[in-house]
Amino acid sequence: MSQSASTSAAQASFRVGTRGSALALTQTTTVAEALAEASGHPYEIVRVKTEGDVTTGPLSQLGGTGVFAAALRLALLDGGCDVAVHSLKDLPSVQPEGLVIAATPVRADVRDALCGRDGLTLATLPAGATVGTGSPRRAAQLRAARPDLVIVDIRGNVGTRLGRVAGNAPAADDGGVGRGVQGDLDAVVLASAGLTRLGLESHITEYLDPAIMLPAPGQGSLAVECRPETAAGGLIAAALAELDDFDTRLAVTAERSLLSRLEAGCAAPVGALGTVHGGGVRLEAVVCSTDGSSLLRRSLDSTEATLDAAAALGVRLAEELLADGAAELAGLAGR
């Protein structure tokens, strides 16, 4: 290779697509820097506005799954970017043709976090306290644990949601979605991973044990998506393979397989948590009625730590839940 050709190859860059929120940009930059370090190539951030960023109203009413992912995926397919970084819990469980999840980096804390005024925890919130969440899964499990609370549907990015808690400073501008009301709630529930990534752990008054609140399938995990040729032999193929964490992929494969068999979207009242132990995978899941009055909680183990075994585990646990009435309980499509 000539010196000029070698210089050109060394300077070749890759484009990373992201949503424009502070959390998305933080997550994307972390992944982009890891890929750049591993590959030796610089990156460019490409901001893509998604339907979930511009549409108001409850997430459960925004047209099904993938409202935060569709525009990013179109940008990938159209060549507007080379890779896209998603919060895995926001991705539909069915992978579209022409795209692959090339890396699931090491998973962050999977737990949900309560951010309460005056240091309040779930146990110490007074009867009738108002708690904000945009997630039917969180709302149902909150109602099950504390039926005396008033659950308020909220929208907006992390800063806006934190700003809803009484005594918190006004939120930074997040593009206008969900803003307008501040300090009207006693607490909000958010993913601890997002708060940690943004350096906002000081707002957490309690990490909610999965025994009380199972997280969303894929929560705490990022998904680096691209076209197959990018993962197979492109500029950053080796870097993507290095970034992928197998234990994380095993756990989320089981969780997303369960979600797929239940035919439940990311806004469904379904929680799931896979853990890798010894030579196998354990999967816990809960399906809730939206009012929290009824919960089905089950768990299963696989003695093999393979992706096929993890996927089969998710299907088996989903079948158990469906046999016990999960579809009717939560209004799921699966039968």
Rank of each mutant, 00 (worst) to 15 (best):
E206S: 03
Y207M: 07
L208T: 07
D209I: 09
D209W: 06
P210A: 09
A211V: 10
I212H: 00
I212Q: 03
M213G: 04
L214W: 08
L214P: 05
P217V: 10
G218C: 11
G218N: 11
Q219V: 04
G220C: 08
G220H: 07
S221F: 08
S221V: 13
S221A: 15
L222M: 11
A223T: 14
C226V: 07
R227F: 01
P228G: 08
P228E: 08
T230F: 01
A231W: 00
A232C: 03
G233M: 05
G233N: 06
G234A: 03
L235F: 00
A241P: 00
E242T: 15
D245Q: 12
D245L: 13
D245I: 14
F246C: 12
F246H: 15
D247S: 13
D247Q: 14
T248L: 01
R249L: 12
L250A: 10
L250G: 08
A251M: 07
R256E: 11
R256M: 15
R261Q: 13
E263Y: 00
E263P: 00
A264S: 03
C266P: 12
A267S: 15
A268W: 04
A268F: 03
P269I: 11
V270R: 10
A272S: 10
L273C: 05
G274W: 05
T275N: 13
G278V: 07
G279R: 02
G280E: 12
G280N: 09
R282A: 13
L283H: 07
A285F: 00
A285G: 08
G292L: 02
G292S: 04
S293E: 12
S293N: 09
S293A: 15
L296D: 04
L296C: 02
R297C: 01
R298P: 02
R298L: 10
S299P: 00
L300K: 13
D301Y: 03
D301A: 12
T306W: 03
D308N: 14
A309G: 14
A309N: 11
A310V: 13
L313S: 10
G314S: 09
V315H: 06
V315L: 00
